[in-house]
Computed example of a mutant assay.
Amino acid sequence: MSTAVGPTPTGARTGLGGYWDRSVATVRAYLALTKARIIEQLLVVTVPAMMLAQRAVPSLWLVLAVLLGGAMAAASAHALNCVIDADIDAKMARTRKRPLARDAVPRSHALVFGLVLGAISAVWLGLTANWTAAALSVAAIAFYIVVYTLVLKRRTSQNIVWGGAAGCMPVVIGWAAVTGNVGWPALVLFGIIFFWTPPHFWALAMRYRDEYAAAGVPMLPVVASPQRVSRQIVLYSWAMVAWSVLLVPATSWIYLATAVVGGTWFLVAAHRLDRAVHRDEVVNSMRLFHLSNTYLTGLFVAVAVDSAFGWPVFGWPF
């Protein structure tokens, strides 16, 4: 006597194949919580800061240790941010595919995941680099979660200005990992990223203004006129370029030339955006957004090359 068995639903897998698919999907979901693409950008600025502190290429072991620790710290902050902002992410087309927005990962599991990553990153940096770098990484995570995500993001249009300070910390952590302290060049690097952040994110927010408005996030383009936003972008762009020159005494002509050419390029683009807005022309703010990534990467590559091959313009020690 036989028992009839119905057909397997199309696309469904059973046994080891189905278990493997579920496991891969789970791993991908947890990886998505870390916002790995943003981590890449954070690490791009860390190595040049370490090279500037060393005035040469640091030991490969220290570089790898700091990169791993920094990646875990950033992943921790991003995962915890996803836990807090799951309701916002679900309302925005740009973010609704994030794991918690589509319930791919239990929020309690994501919370534990973020906290554990943060703890491991601090211990790792303390043991492999020094405890100053470890303490700075913990401070960066706490600032990003408490000050930016919990306090500023949903309450003020200045959220990204002050909250963005957390994204400036990798350069300080990288410097401290080499020297054990925080020198003035590290603070200049911090300031460059600090002034870079508003033009970068406001250009993005101009493109996704309606989505931020629907999610209740008062980004500047949501609560201010396009003319005010573009003018603020210009002002912060000038501050960024002017601040970048402060690093010249600790660098050489390689950095100086890059800062002048790259800064001029960025300012021209910022003024072009502002002019288009004031003339009610078609505005492509994403052009400035993508340019900002190229500018920052190029500037920090110049710092790295300068640290390995250049010589201080004025011969000043730091």
Rank of each mutant, 00 (worst) to 15 (best):
A239K: 02
N293K: 04
A122S: 14
A250K: 11
L127N: 03
V223L: 11
A104T: 06
V313C: 11
R22F: 02
V229Y: 01
D280G: 10
M72C: 12
L68A: 15
M51S: 12
F289M: 07
R94K: 12
R207H: 13
V63S: 12
L256H: 06
A269C: 03
H278D: 13
V182L: 11
A205Y: 05
R98W: 06
P218A: 12
S230D: 09
L247P: 01
L60A: 15
P249E: 07
R37L: 09
T10M: 09
I145N: 01
L189G: 02
I192T: 08
G167S: 13
A214N: 07
M240L: 14
S59N: 15
R155P: 02
R279M: 10
P170D: 08
V283R: 04
A29I: 06
Y212K: 05
Y148H: 10
G69H: 05
T3K: 14
M92P: 01
V66Y: 08
R154C: 03
V147T: 05
L33T: 01
A104Q: 08
T251R: 06
M92F: 07
F309I: 07
V188Q: 05
A270I: 07
A304L: 04
M51Q: 02
P58G: 12
A304T: 02
G17L: 14
L80R: 00
P9V: 02
G262C: 12
L273E: 02
A122V: 14
V301H: 07
I233Y: 03
K91S: 09
T128S: 15
V105C: 08
V172D: 02
N293T: 08
N293A: 14
R13C: 07
W184D: 04
V171K: 08
W61M: 11
L52R: 07
K91G: 01
A250M: 13
L204P: 00
L80E: 03
Y255Q: 09
P106H: 13
V47M: 11
L111D: 04
V5H: 14
V229A: 07
L136Q: 09
T132Y: 03
V123W: 10
V63N: 12
Q227N: 09
M219H: 03
V138P: 03
F113C: 02
G263C: 12
A122Q: 06
A165F: 12
T294E: 05
A73Y: 02
V57T: 15
A176P: 03
P199R: 14
S121G: 11
R94I: 10
